[in-house]
Amino acid sequence: MAFERNVGGIDRIVRGVLGTWLLLVTIRAMLNGQRTKAFATGIASVGLLFNVVIGWCGLNAALGVDSCQR
């Protein structure tokens, strides 16, 4: 199934930076034994980085938001 890209430009950059930062928070939380925090930030990080790599966001699609320049 192919999805039409709806994440681009500044939106994609912000998601990439935030996703990377959350990944670092996840690693630090795991090293400190904070499993709940690590789980929550890990899920958020994976979601944001998935959006960056694929260029598609389900919530954007549901809300009719498209930040790609065409």
Rank of each mutant, 00 (worst) to 15 (best):
F39D: 03
R70A: 11
R28S: 12
S45C: 06
N32T: 13
L49I: 08
M30V: 09
F39Y: 08
L48E: 00
G64T: 02
A44R: 01
Q69F: 15
L24A: 14
S67E: 09
R5W: 05
M1F: 09
R28H: 13
L18S: 11
N51R: 04
G19A: 00
M1T: 10
L48S: 03
G55Q: 00
G8L: 02
M30K: 06
V25S: 05
S67F: 14
N60F: 10
R15L: 01
L48G: 03
G64N: 00
A40F: 13
T36P: 00
V53A: 15
F50V: 12
Q69V: 13
F39G: 06
F3R: 13
G47C: 10
N32L: 15
L24T: 11
A62D: 07
A61D: 10
L63Q: 05
S67H: 07
Q34N: 15
G8M: 04
S67R: 06
L23P: 04
I27A: 11
V52I: 06
G42V: 03
V14C: 07
I43D: 01
G58I: 04
V25D: 12
W56R: 08
G9R: 05
C68P: 04
F3Y: 14
A2C: 08
G9M: 01
S67L: 07
V65I: 15
G8C: 03
L22V: 02
E4L: 11
R15P: 02
Q34V: 08
I54V: 15
A29D: 12
V46L: 14
N60C: 02
N32G: 12
W21Y: 15
I10A: 13
A2W: 13
D11T: 10
A44G: 08
I10D: 06
M30N: 12
R12H: 02
G58F: 09
R35S: 14
F50N: 10
A61N: 06
N32V: 12
L59T: 12
V53W: 13
F50S: 09
V7G: 07
R35N: 14
V65F: 11
C68H: 09
V52P: 00
A44M: 10
M30E: 10
A44N: 01
A40E: 01
V52W: 03
F50D: 09
A2H: 13
R15Q: 02
V65H: 07
V7E: 00
R5Y: 06
V52E: 04
G8I: 07
L48Y: 03
L63N: 04
V52G: 00
G9A: 03
S67M: 02
L22R: 04
I54Y: 10
L59W: 10
W56F: 15
R35C: 05
I27S: 00
I27E: 00
S45I: 05
G47P: 03
F39R: 03
N32M: 15
N32W: 13
G42L: 04
D11H: 08
D66S: 02
A38W: 08
L31T: 13
G16N: 07
W21T: 14
R28N: 15
E4P: 06
V52L: 05
G33F: 04
S45A: 15
T41P: 01
L23E: 04
T41M: 12
L22F: 12
I10W: 14
W21S: 14
T36F: 11
G42Q: 03
R5H: 09
A40Y: 10
S67D: 10
G16M: 04
G55W: 02
L23F: 13
G55I: 01
N60G: 06
V65R: 05
W21D: 08
V14P: 01
D11F: 03
